[in-house]
Structures are given as structure tokens and as C-alpha cells.
Lab assay of single mutants.
Amino acid sequence: NCLEGLIFVITGVLESIERDEAKSLIERYGGKVTGNVSKKTNYLVMGRDSGQSKSDKAAALGTKIIDEDGLLNLI
């Protein structure tokens, strides 16, 4: 459970895995996936064609922004 207690938001199109697979992977390792960035969000996983508003909010809140490889490296 290397992601225990961590909260993730996924945005954009992921290249190597589907969004549902990424969500399942995060949950399997103890993390939680939500739909919107908040002060409780630990990581924003940004894929291709992701919206600017979520990354702006993450930056404003100090949320770590990672890509798909960054997510896989956490596991």
C-alpha cells in the first residue's frame, strides 16, 4: 500500500494505460481518486490534452503535478 492515504486527480488522456486502469491501480495500492483538485489533493496526474484549469488550481494549492510515468514510478 505505497499510496496509502494519498489523493489523486487524473486529467487528460493517458498514453500507456486507460484512465479506469490508472484509477484501479491507485486504489489497489491504497490511494484514492477524486474528480477535482482541492487542498486535500496530493497529486495531479496530467495526461495529453489536459485542461488548464486543473493545473492552475493545483499550482495555486501547491499540489504536486506529475505525468503518467511519475505515477508509475510512485508504485
Rank of each mutant, 00 (worst) to 15 (best):
T11M: 09
L14N: 06
K39W: 08
G62T: 03
I75F: 08
V45K: 00
K39R: 12
C2S: 11
L74Q: 01
I7D: 09
K57Q: 11
L71V: 02
T11L: 05
V37R: 00
Y29K: 06
D56T: 13
S24A: 13
G31L: 00
K40E: 14
C2I: 07
N36Y: 13
S53C: 11
Q52K: 14
I7A: 10
C2L: 08
D67L: 04
K64I: 06
V37A: 03
G62Y: 02
S55A: 15
K64H: 10
G5P: 01
S38M: 01
E15M: 09
D67T: 13
A59Y: 11
N36P: 01
I66T: 06
T34G: 09
S16G: 12
D69F: 10
R48S: 08
N42Y: 12
R28M: 10
T41N: 00
I65Q: 03
K40Q: 12
A60R: 14
E68F: 13
L71Y: 00
A60I: 07
L61F: 14
E18I: 00
D49M: 10
L44Q: 02
N36V: 12
E68A: 10
G5H: 02
E15A: 11
Q52C: 12
Y29T: 02
G12H: 02
G70M: 06
S55E: 10
I75G: 02
A59W: 07
T63I: 15
I66M: 01
E21V: 08
V9Q: 03
L25M: 12
K57C: 09
S50N: 09
F8E: 03
R19Y: 14
K39S: 10
A59C: 09
A22P: 02
L25W: 05
L6W: 03
G12N: 06
I7R: 13
E21H: 10
D49V: 08
T11K: 08
V13N: 15
Y29G: 05
G47D: 06
D49E: 11
T41G: 00
T63A: 10
T63Y: 10
M46I: 11
L71G: 03
S53V: 12
G35I: 14
L74Y: 00
L72I: 08
S24G: 10
